[in-house]
Amino acid sequence: MNETLLEVRELCKYFPIRGGFWGKGKGEVKAVDGVSFSIRQGETLSLVGESGCGKSTLGRTAIRLYEPTSGQIFYRGEEITHLSSRGSKKLRSKMQIIFQDPYSSLNPRMNVFAAISEAMIEHGITQKGAETNERVDELLTLCGLAPEHKYRYPHQFSGGQRQRIGIARALALNPEFIVCDEPVSALDVSIQSQIINLMMELQEKMGLSYLFISHDLGVVRHLSTRVGVMYLGSIVELAPRSELYENPLHPYTQALLSAVPVPDPSVKKEPKLLRGEIPGNVNLPSGCKFHTRCPYAQKICEQEVPPLREVKPQHCAACHFAGEITYDS
C-alpha cells in the first residue's frame, strides 16, 4: 500500500491514582504500555481486546487528546508527540475521532448546525454565513441526514441518527485520519450495519484512514485491512485481517476467536475458555502479561517479556511459543 500516515513508537499512557491522606499518588494505571504500530493511507487498522485493555486510551493518545507519558507519535513522518496547543490545532483538522456513545458525546444545548459548524469556523475552513450553511447541508446529506433537520437538537434524533451527526461532525474538518472509538457498540444491530456501511463508503469516497476500535470481532472482520489484538495495554498480535482470523498465533487471540458465537445452532463448539480474571493494570504480571491465564504457560513466560516479533511475513505476535501452538477453528 502507499504512504505511512501515522506511526506510533513505544507509546505509553499511565494515569496516576489519587488517594491517601495528602492526595499523593498511590501508583499508576498502565492503560497503554509500550505500543508500536503504523497506519498506512487508506487502510483500516482495527484494535480488539477486552474492556479495559487500553484500546480507547491508545486511540485518544495517538491523536493527542491525551498527553502521552512516553513514546513517540509521527504523522506523515513529522513528530507530533509534544506539539504545542497551537501546533496541535492544525493537526486537529487532519485527525478526528468518532466517539462511542452518540447519546452523551453531543452537547445537548447545541443544535446540529452549531455542533457541525463550530469547528469549521474555528479552524477557518469556511466563513460564517452562506458558505458554512452550504457545507453543513452537504455533510448532512453525505451522512444520510436531511439538511432541513439541522436546527434540531440532539435529543430529537435516534441513536443511529446521532451517530451520523457525530460522523458529520468529524468530517467537517476534512480529516485524513479518523479514530473510530467503538462507533457502533451503543447501537442496535440493524443500525450498526448501516453506520458501518456509511463509514466504509466515506472511506472509499474521501480516501480516509481509520483506526477502528472495537470488541466486536464480526464487525472488525468485515471492515479491517489489518487487525491488532490488545491485552493489558500491549499489542499481543498484529496481522492482516484474513491471516489473523484464519491463523491466529497468540493463545489470547485464539481464545478470543474461539469465543465468537457461530450463528448456527447445530454447530457444536467447545470454546477455549480462559481461566481466571484479567489482572488489574496497576501491578502488571511479570514477564508475559498473559502468563497468568495462558493454558500453555511455561517457566520462561513468567520471567521474560516476549517481544512482538514477526513470526510470518507481516504477521507479528508477542509470544515465546508463537508458531508452535496450533489452532483449529
Binding site: 496541535s88 478526528q96 474538518l173
Partner: peptide
C-alpha cells in the same frame, strides 16, 4: 467529565 466536552476538545477548540 461528560463525553461532549471531549468532543469539543476533539474539535480543536480553545480550552
Amino acid at each position: 467529565r461528560q463525553d461532549y466536552i471531549r468532543t469539543a476538545r476533539a474539535k480543536g477548540l480553545k480550552e
